[in-house]
């Protein structure tokens, strides 16, 4: 699986994603600088990493979504390549219009960094097929703007099309308010696009991929993608509405 990690101006999590692809998954990986372009056929997985691109100025992700490289990301998405946006990468996907909705500031108006629990709502995606539906996993969040918001119509669509992939919950899988510290609508932690080849999530699976760091729940997300790509399972991207 050929992986690309986009380096936006001010990305902080680029090295973490690169490390996981290369050293944990053992896959070839390249950095793509935001002033460059790339050909869709060169990569199977394109990661938009976390951090604070452009210092989160204006709105998180707003400026990065206007980077030169975004056109290539859109081309790759249209070509059915897998796009994974983590944290700030998720915000960039929203600002680029590749995923619906937006991010508000966290409900207590502060940066929030902690391990939280999420429930797998849909494991029939390239990103989650190694998890079980309803499974509760532990991941790390670290963000100030992780409070997902969408209008009524969009939310209905996300629900009916089963595009809500992960939701915040307590250790037993219950969607209690206390288990949603960012205030995200419907406890949303991750969503996919209609075609299912783009996933945006606020928690950081790349930080939960090694025993020495105390948590390996995140590595299965990367392994899921690898299995999809290498296992020859062709994800059907032809359905467009």
């Amino acid at each position: 699986m050929n992986c690309a990690v986009i380096q936006f101006a001010g990305s902080g999590g680029d090295g973490d994603c690169y490390h996981v692809c290369k050293n944990i998954l053992g896959q070839p990986v390249e950095y793509i600088f935001h002033k460059e372009t790339f050909a869709a056929q060169d990569f199977d997985l394109i990661i938009l990493p976390g951090g604070a691109s452009h210092g989160d100025y204006l709105r998180p992700g707003a400026l990065a979504a206007r980077s030169k490289v975004i056109k290539s990301v859109i081309d790759a998405a249209n070509a059915g390549k897998y796009i994974l946006g983590i944290g700030n990468g998720f915000q960039i996907l929203l600002e680029a219009g590749l995923l619906p909705g937006t991010m508000l500031i966290n409900k207590d108006l502060k940066f929030y960094s902690e391990d939280i629990f999420v429930r797998v709502e849909n494991n029939a995606t390239p990103f989650t097929n190694l998890y079980k539906n309803g499974e509760v996993i532990r991941l790390t969040v670290a963000c100030k703007y992780g409070n997902y918001y969408a209008d009524k119509k969009t939310m209905e669509q996300l629900k009916t099309q089963n595009k809500i992939v992960l939701t915040y919950c307590d250790i037993n899988g219950n969607a209690a308010e206390a288990s949603n510290p960012l205030g995200s609508m419907e406890n949303i932690a991750a969503i996919a696009n209609q075609e299912g080849n783009i996933l945006g999530l606020m928690p950081h699976p790349e930080r939960c991929a090694e025993e020495i760091l105390g948590n390996t729940d995140g590595i299965r997300m990367f392994q899921s993608i690898l299995q999809y790509v290498e296992g020859g399972k062709i994800h059907d991207c032809s359905r467009r509405s």
Partner: peptide
């Protein structure tokens, strides 16, 4: 206090 600090970016925090 420290919940307001990103403690794990860099994937080195043991």
């Amino acid at each position: 206090v420290y919940r307001q600090f990103d403690q794990t970016i860099g994937t080195n925090t043991v």
